[in-house]
Amino acid sequence: MSSHMQRREFITLLGGTVATWPLAVRAQQPAGRVYRVGFLGIASRQRALPFVEAFEDGLRRLGYRVGENVTIEYRFANGEMDRLPALAADLVRLGVDVIFAAFNPATVATMTATRTLPIIMVATIDPVGTRLVASLARPGGNVTGLAADAGGEILGKRFELLKEVIPNLSRLGIMWNPDVAVNRSRQAAMTETARTLGLTTIPVEVRGVDTLEQAFATMTKEDAQAFVVQGDSVLHEYRGQIAEMAARNRLPSAAVAKDLAAAGFLLSYGADLLDLYRRAASFADKIFKGANPADLPVEQPIKFELVVNLKTAKALGLTVPPTLLARADEVIE
């Protein structure tokens, strides 16, 4: 047989093998299964974009191809909490395999819509205290995922950071929105944590932009030396106004989300949310592979971000200790 002939036969043989090969591979996998994911967000699509990108990046890192073997149905409430139940019900009706719920109100709305579909919470506050799960180790129902803040230690950290900049800090305002259910248990935890650090708290309720003037008047009257804002989407929307009024009232302020430091707050300290959205994808992966949400432990943040606004510190005549600046993930000058 000529070498020419051999080569041709070999190619035919190889060709034949390759032709049957994809069929064999397809048979081993749950053949070309396309997973459907629901995603319920509180903010607008525009504001949620960085989180959406981190979430999709997390899926890609696990080998999923968005639009090919996984499709995502996004629903955004545009900051209107009362739209959440209808949007959650819509995702359940579509028959998605799993629903991602950003923050507590979205998780609550989704739990009301389904007791069977797996729900993955992405950045909840105090999921045990707010009864979203039975425990962090064994959630026990159809809900698991990631907590942005599962306890008091992170609250204490925020107060300690303020004390580093204001060593004689003793009277601390806490601005919060009582309309968000989770904030009540969080408020109790913050008050307790402040007390252990020797701080007297001055709670001020802010339900909307019209109550801001009153909140600052109360803090001034009660001799607050600084204030913290309890993280919540409503107050997040007013971060610009709050920062401006804090400057006018010469009050140093701290918050969870780094957008508030960017808006002019003195500092922010909280979980790296983009990291939580990226990690959320692994819960979908485990559930697609047969895991039961009831048995998947709730995970906590690994990465925290400290942002210091030096421009604000200078305007308030405050000196930020170099040790604090050295620990900051970001310094705004």
Rank of each mutant, 00 (worst) to 15 (best):
176 W>N: 00
272 D>I: 00
273 L>E: 05
224 A>F: 10
177 N>M: 02
287 I>Y: 04
200 T>A: 08
282 S>V: 02
203 P>W: 09
206 V>T: 08
298 V>C: 11
294 A>W: 12
193 T>N: 07
217 A>T: 11
273 L>D: 04
265 F>S: 13
234 V>N: 05
263 A>Q: 14
271 A>F: 12
198 G>M: 04
222 E>I: 02
291 A>G: 12
249 N>D: 02
275 D>S: 13
193 T>S: 10
283 F>E: 01
166 I>S: 07
210 D>L: 08
299 E>N: 08
235 L>G: 10
289 K>D: 11
270 G>H: 03
260 L>V: 06
267 L>I: 12
170 S>D: 05
166 I>F: 02
192 E>H: 10
242 I>L: 13
170 S>L: 05
265 F>A: 14
226 A>I: 07
190 M>A: 15
175 M>Q: 03
168 N>A: 14
199 L>P: 11
197 L>S: 03
260 L>K: 03
181 A>W: 01
172 L>V: 01
188 A>K: 15
184 R>T: 15
189 A>H: 00
196 T>H: 14
253 S>F: 05
197 L>H: 10
202 I>D: 05
240 G>Y: 12
209 V>R: 14
293 P>L: 06
212 L>C: 07
174 I>S: 04
203 P>A: 08
287 I>N: 12
290 G>C: 10
191 T>P: 06
173 G>L: 06
291 A>Y: 14
250 R>S: 11
254 A>H: 07
200 T>F: 00
191 T>W: 02
230 Q>E: 14
267 L>G: 09
169 L>K: 09
209 V>K: 12
206 V>F: 00
218 T>R: 07
293 P>Q: 04
174 I>D: 04
191 T>N: 09
199 L>N: 12
196 T>P: 03
191 T>H: 05
266 L>P: 05
197 L>C: 06
256 V>F: 15
292 N>F: 01
298 V>I: 06
254 A>P: 11
255 A>L: 10
232 D>P: 02
277 Y>P: 04
187 Q>E: 12
283 F>D: 02
234 V>F: 03
207 R>D: 04
187 Q>A: 14
234 V>H: 02
220 T>V: 13
183 N>E: 14
194 A>Q: 07
249 N>E: 08
244 E>T: 13
280 A>E: 00
294 A>N: 09
270 G>E: 00
286 K>H: 07
259 D>W: 07
176 W>T: 01
164 E>R: 15
274 L>G: 13
294 A>R: 14
281 A>F: 04
173 G>M: 05
283 F>L: 02
170 S>R: 15
263 A>E: 13
238 Y>E: 06
295 D>C: 04
212 L>M: 13
271 A>C: 10
169 L>I: 11
175 M>A: 11
194 A>E: 05
174 I>C: 05
250 R>L: 04
289 K>H: 13
228 V>T: 15
298 V>M: 06
168 N>Q: 14
259 D>I: 09
236 H>T: 12
260 L>Q: 14
265 F>P: 09
286 K>F: 02
264 G>M: 02
167 P>D: 13
173 G>A: 08
268 S>A: 15
218 T>E: 08
284 A>L: 06
218 T>N: 03
